[in-house]
Amino acid sequence: MANVLINAPKTARRGEIIEIKALILHPMETGFRPGTNGSIIARNIIERFTATWNGDEIFRIDLSPAIAANPFVSFFAVATDSGTVSLRWSGDEGFQVEESIAITVE
């Protein structure tokens, strides 16, 4: 179940630099910790986060096991055209989440 909080402006002036912030619920299990029975807890992290603006990729990061649970991502983009910003998280155990927000550029 996707549980995401996104903070981005709904409208922007053309050429304006806007900040997009996204927070997602995820354990980010490192794969290095032993469980209560001594065996290693399998790694379960988000491997990649990408953002696209009307289908064009504008931002991408690879996440590592050292990143804390519930990763918070913040990045800047230049508002060019009205449209949809899609945020995608993908990772271990088939983790796939996509959330879209609409931004109007005036």
């Binding site: 903070n7 912030k21 927070l23 997602i24 519930n70």
Partner: peptide
């Protein structure tokens, strides 16, 4: 900030 506070998740 309600969108940065992980408790809000």
């Amino acid at each position: 900030d309600g969108t940065a506070n992980p408790g809000m998740l």
